[in-house]
Simulated scan of single mutants.
Amino acid sequence: MKKSLLIVALAISIVSCNKQTDVKEVKTAYVDTSKLLEEYTEAKDIEAKYKAKSDEMGRELEAEVNRFKSEAANFQKNAQANGQAWAQQKGAELQKREQQLSYAQQAMIQQLQQESGAEMDTLVKGVKKYIKEYGKKEGYAYIYGTGEAVSILYAEDKYDITKDIVKLLNDKYKSAPKTDDKTDVKADAKKEIEALESKK
């Protein structure tokens, strides 16, 4: 009796293994992250903001560099006429000023990199959060990222939702209240130059 029950149980398990089971299709998609950042209006605005800030601060610093070059040219002309003691003192002053200009340039670059990096990090975190919410809302099991940091090697074009995400993010960004960053750029540039002037 036990042997026949075992055979029946084995037969049932074989039959059930042969039946096709219904497998739920997993909904997946991918976003080209490089393209997303190229086409996302907020990312473009951040890039433009820091380019303008860099240009403004660069112009102010360039004016200081031009004044320095003019003084250095005059120094060479007047060195013999004013004597060796004057030339040594003036040469030391010019060398110190050249170092200050170099430090100011490095500080400006570092400041811009830190500020823009912080803003881009915030933007990327926001985009990731948005994609996560989008994925839940639209019923995706997975949304992959491609681009600079590739996380998949192949994806059919029909799974590319980059355009949808870009459009939704741009719509969301356009509807958000705006602030005027132009005054901030000029104020920051002015502060950098004042700091440079005070070091003279």
Rank of each mutant, 00 (worst) to 15 (best):
S198I: 02
Y159V: 00
K96Q: 15
D180P: 06
S13Y: 06
N74T: 05
E156F: 10
Y130P: 01
R67H: 03
S175Q: 13
A63P: 01
V185M: 03
D121Y: 04
I143Q: 03
K172H: 03
A187R: 07
V26S: 13
K182M: 10
Q20E: 12
N170Y: 07
R59V: 15
D32G: 02
E197Y: 02
T183S: 14
E115T: 12
Q110C: 09
Y140K: 12
V166Q: 02
D55R: 13
K200D: 05
K44M: 01
S16A: 13
E133R: 07
Y142P: 01
Y173C: 02
V23I: 09
S16Q: 04
D184P: 01
D181E: 13
Q95D: 06
E148P: 00
I131R: 03
A155K: 15
G139L: 02
K167D: 06
K125G: 07
T122D: 13
E115L: 14
G83C: 13
Y142C: 08
L10A: 15
Q88A: 11
K19P: 00
E115Y: 02
D184G: 08
T183Q: 14
Q110A: 15
T21N: 08
L94Y: 06
A43F: 10
Y30M: 04
A189G: 05
L169W: 05
M57D: 04
I143V: 11
D184Q: 14
E47C: 00
S4K: 10
N82C: 08
A85E: 11
G91V: 13
K77A: 13
A176N: 04
V124H: 12
S70I: 10
Q110L: 08
Y50K: 09
L5Y: 04
A104S: 14
L5K: 12
A92N: 01
Q76E: 14
L36C: 09
N74Y: 03
T41Q: 12
A176C: 01
T179I: 10
K53I: 01
T122S: 15
C17G: 12
V124G: 00
Y103L: 02
D184I: 11
K182F: 03
K125V: 05
K178H: 08
A87T: 10
E148Y: 07
T122M: 14
R67C: 00
D157Y: 09
D180G: 05
A73F: 04
M1N: 06
A107R: 13
V8R: 02
T183C: 08
G139H: 07
E119Q: 10
Q89S: 15
D157L: 05
D188R: 15
I46Y: 02
G145A: 08
D55E: 14
V8I: 09
D45P: 05
N74V: 04
E156A: 14
K90C: 01
K158R: 15
G145L: 12
G145K: 06
D184W: 07
K167C: 00
Q111D: 13
K69G: 05
V150F: 03
Q84R: 15
Y173P: 00
Y103H: 09
V185C: 04
I152P: 01
T122V: 11
E192I: 09
A29K: 03
S54P: 04
A176R: 11
T146A: 13
Y50S: 00
A43S: 15
Q95K: 15
S70P: 01
